[in-house]
Amino acid sequence: MRYEAPSTLENAVALLAGESGSAHVLAGGTDLLVGMKSGFTEPDLIVDIKRIDGMHTVTQEDGGWRIGAAVPGIQLGEHDGVKADWPGVVEALELIGSTQIQGRATMAGNLCNASPAADSVPAMVAADATVRIAGPNGSRDIPVIEVATGPGQTSLAKGEIVESIFLPARPVRSGDAYLRFIPRTEMDIAVVGCGVSLTLDEGGTCTAACVALGAVAATVLLVEDAARVLIGTAVDDAALDALAAACSAAAKPIDDKRGTVAFRKKVSGVLARRAAKIALERAKG
């Protein structure tokens, strides 16, 4: 195995593109090294992107935030600007693992690991975040939901790297939230996760909504039916009931060691309702 820590994005892309064996990007490493320990992942090349300029920075852009691929959870949690605009996204990232994991784990890594249960992904999907991908043919931007194509699978081509994640400008009178269910209070993988983002008009009627579920399908689900039942309402109890029902109906989970189908479907609705209430309070300011 080779370890490389290039100082430019171009070099990183060239290294990854040129490797004939198994090549992996190392940002926080909190998934990669676990895979290596178990023997599940046996890289021929590891490209550490943390010595590349810009990978550690959070910058304002078009009223939104561009977050470097190597920004760890703890750094984002310390960023008052991002926290104020997208508290749900920051909270989702901060839920991943322990304080120690937070010192290393990145949102880009969480996304590219492509676990259906990744905490930050439903929150980013709800926030309508996009991803900037650098590759041998230049760079491109795609919506977050288009990155993971299945458990452990991404749409990234050989040689491509997530360079940054962009959280758009937060609309006025909007709020987001992410909740997950785990058996303990910390240290678990989400059994169900739900991100909600919504926008109100001056009268308090919901004009836009985005609801995403994690851990209930092979990839994160964008639940359009759930958004539809919120829009045009005051996000009252009836709307929340409809939201919960839509989420429970949309969830297509499996039985596994972390939860059952029945449990995940029901809790999808429970969490959606609870997350929507938080998002609503935030939208109201």
């Binding site: 058996p183 303990r184 910390e186 240290m187 678990d188 993988i189 060691k257 972390r258």
Partner: peptide
């Protein structure tokens, strides 16, 4: 220790 869940 991820899925054998001792109390934290």
């Amino acid at each position: 220790f991820l899925d054998y869940r001792v109390p934290v």
